[in-house]
């Protein structure tokens, strides 16, 4: 589904390299987790896949369902079914949650969204993620707690029905109950849509207790240094990233 080939990325208008010959292939229905120390390039990878304006691909390609998306606009990547659940979702005053989501859904599906169906669907999804339905009419993420913002990200995800989900530090700012709620919703979505793939970006194994990865990769200095199964994540939590350096320093 997602194939990243020899990707080199730098911060635009600088000489700061972020990813170096980074390659990764994620098959349909697979869950991959990327772990790594601060500054390894994890969040930059997620933003690069989404097409963030700060990052410049200097070499390599990103293929999604066989198509090179490296030069596509951000919105076109989203329309193809890529969803980035952001680490720090933006607050946008003046645009209500409902207006935002209704527009997004109509853009992604290329169909006009019926207001009655929309509100009915929204109320159902909001109940699932345990968000107050009044939030629908408030400005986007305005006055939301950290946990509510993350729940709102998952609400958007459930509503836009993506094929490829990137969870960037989903667990940051979430208490245990909220983490459980959002992960249960993600798992339910994955059960209903078994073709959907997930890329989890995380520092900690907490989220991996809920969403089981098929593969865990360790990213250091913009390169994958080690790949394993979920045991690798718990090994890292126990021994730290220094063990990776000892294992495979070229």
């Amino acid at each position: 589904m997602m194939k990243i080939e020899n990707l080199n990325v730098k911060i635009k208008d600088t000489d700061i390299d972020i990813l170096r010959d980074f390659s990764l292939e994620i098959g349909s229905g697979e869950v991959h987790a990327i772990m790594g120390p601060n500054g390894a390039g994890k969040s930059s990878l997620s933003k690069t896949i989404m097409g963030h304006y700060k990052y410049e691909v200097t070499n390599g390609n990103i293929y999604f369902e066989g198509e090179d998306i490296s030069n596509l606009e951000v919105s076109d990547r989203a329309k193809k079914g890529i969803f980035l659940c952001m680490q720090d979702p933006m607050v946008i005053e003046g645009i209500s949650n409902s207006e935002f989501l209704r527009t997004a859904r109509s853009e992604v599906s290329s169909e006009k969204v019926n207001l009655y169906t929309f509100i009915k669907d929204m109320e159902e999804v909001m109940k699932k993620v345990e968000l107050d339905s009044n939030m629908l009419h408030r400005s986007l993420n305005f006055g939301f707690s950290g946990g509510e913002k993350k729940k709102n990200e998952i609400l958007q995800m459930l509503f836009l029905k993506p094929k490829f989900i990137i969870l960037d530090e989903l667990d940051s700012g979430l208490d245990v109950d909220s983490l459980r709620i959002v992960c249960e919703n993600i798992n339910e979505y994955l059960n209903d849509n078994p073709e959907t793939s997930v890329l989890i970006i995380t520092h900690y194994t907490r989220i991996l207790d809920y969403i089981k990865p098929d593969y865990v990769h360790v990213l250091v200095d913009g390169k994958i240094k080690k790949t394993g199964n979920s045991d690798l994540a718990f090994e890292i939590e126990k021994n730290g990233y220094s063990m990776i350096g000892n294992d495979i320093d070229e």
Partner: peptide, 25 residues
């Protein structure tokens, strides 16, 4: 740009995002 990126990452085109932002502003 960060706000536009957020909106576009949900499938909203740049033009439509700008229009929504103008209205809200």
């Amino acid at each position: 740009e960060d706000i536009l990126f957020y909106m576009m990452s949900r499938g909203i085109s740049r033009e439509k995002a700008n229009r929504l932002l103008l209205n809200g502003f």
